[in-house]
Design a protein around this nucleic acid. Structure first.
Lengths: 341, 341
DNA sequence: TTGAAAGCGCTAACAA
DNA sequence: TTGTTAGCGCTTTCAA
């Protein structure tokens, strides 16, 4: 049995209240007594019992709001993580409100944040739309001591306490490293992005192209194409480019559109010959990976992106734990058909 | 604030004791009352408060023993995980004893298990030596209701409650998949194992060779070589084989010895030309990966292999949670120099 | 500046 | 079969 605050109190010849004041620097205590108590606690290896502390802390009404963007398979993973964390912290007496917004809309994001605040949330985790007004809202919340955690894509320079999500630039580099390893000499490479305005996509493409050019001088990189997350579009692009250039050896997708690419490759009888590397471990993508139509998929721990922010906010609000890291980059996992879970 | 057992009691017009008996099937209760209480609890969405439960459960004296094999960088990770879990469960009033045994010896393993039992441990997590006597000891502990969890390598057919570790066969297949993707046509491949008797190594080599042969018919596989986890040995093997065969395009290491391989390649001026895939994310291996001397490293979540078993045993002993899964295979992560954490 | 005591939600021992 | 009550370790309020 671990040592309790009562044992410290007995050893120091004081009461539990005094021990509490000493160890938690609550003031209203004789400095010498405080010092002695702290010394004894250290000597006896005292560690406060989590359960006891949690029980009394559960009197604080903690309500955490989570805002997740429109339904995509990836956001589904984020949702699962958030729900798991919700279950856990609710067993500690807290409350979690999860809102899924319908469109990737700035107004919706801001309105939902306001709604959650009015519902009494004292902490918010949000997958933000990239916009100046969202930044302002985050800063306004911070001013009211409502901590905000950004998920998946950061609002740089805002007063959010931290960001949990992938390092998109590095994600592009990982893809480039793989492409460099598997491509035959003098191949041409096609890059397909989503929306030109999307920052994650922009960063992935930058990381990919810079790294590929730097480590494989023989490779010729085509100008980036935009498929707007649409499979028919990515199919058209793939077909068009493959007809124009017969030496394309690899395709990198920084966003959705794998299905279109695979369809195009199949129809042209080039499956497997043209290497495909893409992001996101969606069920559909995994299926293409298993079938050998895609060589590598890069994952970004969606589950953790939902789970962690809720836990971070809970620990801050419940225990007062401050977050040491401003950025938590989720791991970029490399998946082949063999290590798919 | 979440709903409490008192609220259920009030709603059902009974006492907290009765609610407790009903929800935890403790018997000594009128079945109809029990049914009604359960219904009301469900309706009100009752979830027992973890902190409250933990506090009262902390009266149970829980002592968990962990046995970790001799110091290797990988076992260091396992140790870190075990220490993290130790800290967490000790904050819940439990106690954790960690023993690092000096050699991978059967007698040492068994003796340490006995020692931990005599020290009052009511649950054991162990990285077992593969031997019949270890199996018998595990079964004896099970008979005395001391649950045992095997870590990293399983004792199949023993009465351990579960196994946490890698799927070695699949690990070999992952390596094969990568090798198949990066090797030029008609290459020869060298496989270097550790000890011929080690099961993990045996399985990795099987998985690797079977998969590589099945997906790349052009590749010629050399007979497996044993380096006994020794760098000078792996260096000698590499040099010898490279001199004998000039078409070796890839080397797969199922155990330690990367340094020797890299040294041999450098001296022969073949770094980068001969692709190297190995296991274990040791600091040294990571350095070789960063320098481009190794193309891929496969990791097996050592931290989790130390952390999880302690938590599993704690949850079983503390809350009575039964483990649903007999096998928990840790993820086989693929690391290049770009996604190294 | 300190001590005493209440109470968080739960389980378990005891009484009825 | 049920209710009552003590107490787990901690924080916090109230009194001294």
């Amino acid at each position: 049995m671990a040592v309790t605050s009562q044992q410290i109190a007995d050893a120091a010849g004081v009461s539990r209240g005094t021990v509490d004041r000493a160890l938690n620097n609550r003031g209203r205590i004789n400095p010498e007594v405080a010092e002695r108590v702290r010394r004894i606690a250290k000597e006896m290896g005292y560690q406060p019992n989590r359960a006891g502390r949690a029980l009394v802390m559960s009197r604080r009404a903690i309500k955490i709001g989570v805002i997740i963007q429109p339904k995509t398979p990836f956001m589904g993973k984020v949702m699962e993580g958030a729900i798991e964390a919700k279950k856990e912290v609710e067993q500690m007496g807290a409350e979690v409100l999860i809102r899924e917004i319908e469109s990737m809309d700035v107004d919706q994001t801001i309105n939902t944040m306001q709604e959650l605040k009015e519902a009494g949330c004292n902490g918010i985790a949000v997958v933000p739309a990239e916009d100046e007004r969202v930044r302002n809202t985050i800063d306004a919340f911070a001013a009211e001591h409502i901590p905000v955690v950004t998920i998946n894509c950061d609002i740089q320079g805002s007063k959010r306490i931290c960001f949990i999500g992938p390092d998109a630039l590095q994600g592009g580099r990982v893809a480039a490293g793989l492409m460099a390893e598997i491509l035959p000499k003098d191949s041409r490479v096609l890059m397909i992005s989503g929306y030109p305005t999307n920052n994650s996509n922009k960063n992935r493409i930058s990381g990919f192209s810079e790294e590929l050019v730097s480590c494989r001088e023989d490779i010729k990189l085509l100008d980036v194409q935009y498929a707007f997350e649409d499979d028919r579009m990515s199919e058209m692009i793939t077909k068009g480019m493959l007809k124009e250039y017969d030496d394309i050896g690899g395709i990198y997708l920084s966003a959705s559109g794998v299905q279109g690419v695979c369809k195009a490759l199949e129809e042209l009888g080039m499956t497997g010959r043209v290497k495909v590397i893409s992001n996101d471990l969606t069920d559909q993508n995994k299926q293409f990976l298993r079938e050998g139509k895609v060589q590598f998929l890069l994952g970004q721990e969606g589950h953790r992106q939902g789970y962690e922010p809720v836990q971070i906010l809970f620990n801050k609000l419940f225990y007062g734990n401050e977050r040491e890291a401003e950025f938590t980059y989720t791991e970029i996992s490399i998946k082949t058909k063999y290590n798919l879970v």
